[in-house]
Design a protein around this nucleic acid. Structure first.
Length: 209
DNA sequence: ACATTAAGTGATT
DNA sequence: AATCACTTAATGT
């Protein structure tokens, strides 16, 4: 586990000195598939780096409305959570393990210092920020410009890409929540995709063809 | 065997 | 595309 953290960080151009510090003050966390990592409302005290697995970042409003913002894959981090932490604002995100995952949690209070003192770290954080932002734009695009049918199909392909698996083990209800629509609608569109030979449906499982 | 949860479908707005 | 109401199928206890 320590190894993947080290290679991720040195890949990002971070010097050994800081890598050692990150190893020292961070804690490793394993999460089972489906487990909540960050709950909405809580001001998160850690910035997670994904070592293995996959996390989803979901936006929630006060009511039951949710929408998937983006995934965090191995090697990636959610610098977005920095913003609400620095501002002391509470976040309205929900981060969930989509797979069994391993994370490295860095306490937020080191961030300020590291960003100031390490050019490489600053770059790492900013480029993560940039990447999340771009993903966000893509999500906005698909919400505004695609109909649900295309959006759903794109969702399935994205998930395939993120998990590197043609099998998606989710209920229609869970998918509906990520897209902020109703289960009935998802079921119908999935049926349509199946009839067109794009996917295969089983209970709690979708195979992409 | 029964209860619960997931998925399929017609009809209506 | 959303909602309601109902059916059928799969799974857990």
């Amino acid at each position: 586990m320590q190894e993947s953290l080290k290679s991720i960080l040195s890949e990002a151009g971070i010097e050994d000195e800081l890598i050692q510090e990150i190893q020292k003050v961070g804690i490793s966390k394993t999460a089972r598939s489906g487990e909540l990592i960050i709950t909405p409302g809580s001001t998160s005290m850690y910035m997670p780096i994904v070592l293995e697995g996959l996390l989803s970042v979901v936006r929630q409003d006060g009511d039951a409305n949710e929408i998937l913002l983006y995934y965090l894959e191995g090697g990636e981090t959610c610098a977005m959570s920095l913003a609400c932490c620095i501002e002391g604002k509470r976040n309205d995100f929900k981060v969930t393990a989509e797979d069994n995952s391993v994370l490295w949690m860095i306490p937020m209070n080191y961030m300020d210092e590291w960003i100031q003192n390490y050019r490489s770290f600053r770059k790492y954080v900013f480029s993560s920020y940039q990447t999340r932002f771009d993903e966000l734009l893509e999500t906005i695009d698909s919400i505004t410009f695609l109909n649900l049918y295309d959006r759903l199909y794109k969702y399935l392909l994205d998930k395939k890409q993120a998990t590197k698996s043609y099998e998606i083990n989710m209920s229609h209800e869970q998918i509906a929540q990520h897209l902020n629509t109703s289960r009935v609608v998802v079921s119908r569109l999935l049926k349509q995709l199946e009839n067109e030979g794009k996917i295969e449906l089983e209970r709690n499982r979708i195979s992409i063809l």
